[in-house]
Amino acid sequence: MMEKQYWLDKPSNVKRVLVGLYLLCAGLLLTDALHHRHSILQMEGWFGFYSVYGFVACVILVLAAKELRKLVARPKDYYENNDDQ
């Protein structure tokens, strides 16, 4: 029996979700041109500050985490041979 096909099983639908996200992001970025942000710190008022910061922060986060993994990752049984000693 064929298993039920779910909406997200179709690659074209995943693509639709992604395109939706891109459009949403573009729209949100454009609101900075229309809406003057009430800000406490000066940098908050810059065009696209929150958008760029969110994007860059996540890219840095992931790339730095990859480097961190090189430093701290160990096999699963790393402690097991030592705990009992």
């Binding site: 609101t31 809406h35 958008s51 969110g54 922060a57 992931v62 993994r69």
Partner: peptide, 25 residues
């Protein structure tokens, strides 16, 4: 509302791009 939405959706955008480009660990 706008600034928080921008922060979060652009984080999601970064995740999506890193995932689709194979850069995500």
């Amino acid at each position: 509302v706008i600034s928080q939405s921008q922060l979060l959706f652009f984080s999601a955008l970064a995740f999506a791009l890193l995932m689709t480009s194979g850069l995500y660990p």
